[in-house]
Design a protein around this nucleic acid. Structure first.
Length: 579
RNA sequence: GCGCCCGUAGCUCAGCAGGAUAGAGCAUCGGAUUUCUAAUCCGAGGGUCGCAGGUUCGAAUCCUGCCGGGCGCGCCA
């Protein structure tokens, strides 16, 4: 057991305390303990925490909620760590915790490497399938959401102790390669290939595709090339491999800049020899049947359309590939959960896959985390209209904007440091813009929003950290040799109390973000913490405060910095030491 | 036609395992820097939470219908 698990946080302590009192006051109540829980007060004038369970109980016990709350409160064990408890309105129970108890909680956090966050995922395996770009297509701004959200979910799970296998399931196999090979053989511009390989591959594909629409012979030729590739023809395989290699080189350059890495990079091609077996399995189980020459699985009982698992020409498709992937992952990694992060257009596809997996008796919990499409103010972007914004250009622009800011505000910093800060700030801004938003809404891309560097943004959080680092330096310089941890944390100002309550909520923010698979929950939390801190910073003196108060406040600053850094790290955002 | 999602301040969005007077950012207006980094802080204005019903002591949140928008729906992935 790690130290962090011995610590019962204040909310838990309050929950247990209230549950005991409820049993005493209403032995006949059979309310399950989980429904009796405190939440942070909606308004600090009411207290620190509130419990709304009395109103719910009133329905069950058929009594006046206000009376239940009163009897309940009367039954609590007197506790020195609770400063005040009272009933308000229709039956809200408001609780104010003693400042000393909050301070104790903070000091426990301060001594714990994990900031009192329990490892709830220990001994559990989860596979995260995210990013998954298509070979021979440049990554554009639409690809950033899967990558950034997936990366944050990855980090959150790891922090909670899960064994995470991040798998980049590349789109590296499929009918498009026949056309691409034809395009490559007939239209290749070697100079372009050298300079912008993936862009050139995309151009070749588009050109070949256009040709195929007016020229049936071309289409036939492309099909033949595809069959040759699938049968292992040496030339075509070598060509295909070079497409994959060129694409990976470019993807990796972007992943490096984003600080994203994978445990496994297995494209669809990895499973190509397992597809026939999947169809055979489905047939053997009586799940697949012939329809119009294709093999299909009917899903009427699930209320969703049937799913084709083998085309009438004998080829396999996406669903079959994903089923093979699930099987392989369950067998190889003994995973209890697989999480897919893709855009909303794949909802039906995954519903079908998951339903078939269930019918096969596969036990892994399959979850699709989907997000809304990204679009431009003038509408959806498309290669045809040429309004696609390449991901690399977005990253460049972000770093340039951030560099201008850094140069303006820290002219004394040397150029290399300025660039390093600009990288962290620019990339952080882009990631945060995505992570702080409910994934399910459609995003309208605008440069100003994606690259916002003030207000609710990563740079705001990074800036708060940088100020704290500066305060800590000045403290060290003025009081060298003094350890502020020798002094207790004491909360006197209103804003300090507010700060304390926020800090103590870190573990639950992390847990909730992970359980709901929504990094935005953590982003919101961090922003609120930073706001409270900024207000504290602006309105309360630290270095000029008298001894004791000074140290307490420096400790608070240090704890805020640790929480912000840890939280941002879980979102995949760096925090430079200085800005 | 069927299915999934979205509709909250001028703009972009939080809030939606029901709770007290609906919150941020941007923009606008007004203040704060001899003092810990002004990428900041303090304050003001700004709302029929798409519309109409229903459930409930209580609905932005749950249910039904409608309107508007996005996406998907047998051989692409």
């Amino acid at each position: 057991m790690t130290p962090s698990e011995k610590i019962v946080n204040i909310e838990e302590k309050l929950n247990n305390w209230l549950r005991e009192a409820l049993v005493r006051a209403f032995p006949e109540s059979t309310a399950d303990a989980d429904t009796i829980a405190v939440t942070p007060a909606t308004d600090e004038q009411f207290g620190d925490y509130q419990c709304n369970a009395a109103m719910g109980l009133a329905r069950v016990l058929k009594t006046n909620p206000r009376q239940i709350a009163t009897q309940w409160v009367d039954a609590v064990e007197p506790a020195d760590w609770v400063e005040q408890i009272d009933v308000a309105g229709p039956g809200f129970i408001n609780i104010r915790v003693a400042a000393a108890a909050l301070a104790d909680g903070l000091m426990a956090m301060d001594e714990d490497a994990r900031l009192c966050t329990p490892e709830t995922g220990r001994d559990r395996t989860v596979i995260l399938d995210y990013s998954s770009p298509n070979v021979a297509k440049p990554m554009h701004i639409g690809h950033i959401r899967s990558t950034v959200i997936g990366c944050a979910l990855d980090r959150l799970h790891r922090f909670l102790g899960f064994r995470v296998i991040a798998d980049n399931h590349l789109g590296d196999w499929g009918t498009q390669f026949g056309l691409l090979i034809m395009g490559y053989r007939h239209f290749l511009d070697e100079t372009r290939l050298r300079e912008q390989p993936v862009e050139e591959l995309e151009r070749l594909y588009v050109k070949s595709y256009e040709r195929s629409r007016e020229d049936p012979d071309w289409l036939d030729a492309a099909r033949r090339e595809l069959v040759k590739l699938q049968q292992g023809d040496a030339d075509n395989r070598a060509l295909w491999q070079s497409f994959v290699d060129l694409s990976m080189r470019e993807f990796n350059r972007i992943y490096d800049r984003l600080g994203v890495s994978f445990d496994v990079v297995r494209g669809e091609s990895y499973y190509r020899d397992q597809l026939a077996a999947v169809v055979q399995l489905l047939q053997a189980q009586g799940l697949a049947e012939e329809s119009e020459g294709a093999q299909v699985v009917r899903l009427d009982d699930e209320g969703i359309p049937l799913c084709i698992v083998q085309k009438s020409d004998g080829g396999f498709n996406y669903a079959t590939s994903d089923l093979a992937t699930i099987k392989q992952r369950m067998e190889e990694f003994d995973t209890e959960q697989i999480i897919y992060v893709t855009d909303e257009r794949q909802q039906l596809h995954f519903k079908q896959c998951f339903a078939i997996a269930r019918k096969l008796g596969w036990t892994a919990q399959l979850v699709h985390v989907w997000f809304g499409l990204m679009r431009l103010p003038e509408g959806t972007f498309s290669t045809r209209e040429g309004n696609v914004i390449k991901l690399e250009r977005l990253l460049d622009e972000a770093e340039e904007r951030a560099l201008r800011l850094v140069q303006a505000s820290s002219p004394e910093m040397d150029a290399a440091d300025q660039r390093a800060v600009a990288r962290a700030v620019g990339i952080g801004a882009i990631k945060y813009a995505d992570l702080s938003q409910n994934p399910q809404s459609m995003i309208t891309f605008t440069w100003d929003k994606a690259l916002a560097m003030d207000g609710n943004s990563a740079p705001y959080l990074q800036y708060a950290c940088a100020r704290i680092a500066s305060v800590q330096d000045k403290y060290q310089a003025r009081y060298s040799g003094q350890d502020c941890r020798a002094y207790p944390i004491e909360l006197t100002e209103v804003v300090e109390r507010r700060l304390a309550l926020r800090l103590l909520r870190f573990p639950s923010a992390v847990n909730r973000a992970t359980a709901l698979l929504r990094p935005s929950v953590l982003a919101d939390y961090l922003y609120e913490l930073a706001q409270t801190y900024s207000s504290f910073y602006q309105n309360v003196p630290f270095l000029k405060a008298p001894e004791g108060v000074r140290e307490s406040r420096i400790r608070l600053c240090g704890l805020v910095a640790r929480v912000l850094r840890q939280g941002l790290d879980l979102l995949g955002i760096e925090t430079p030491g200085r800005i």
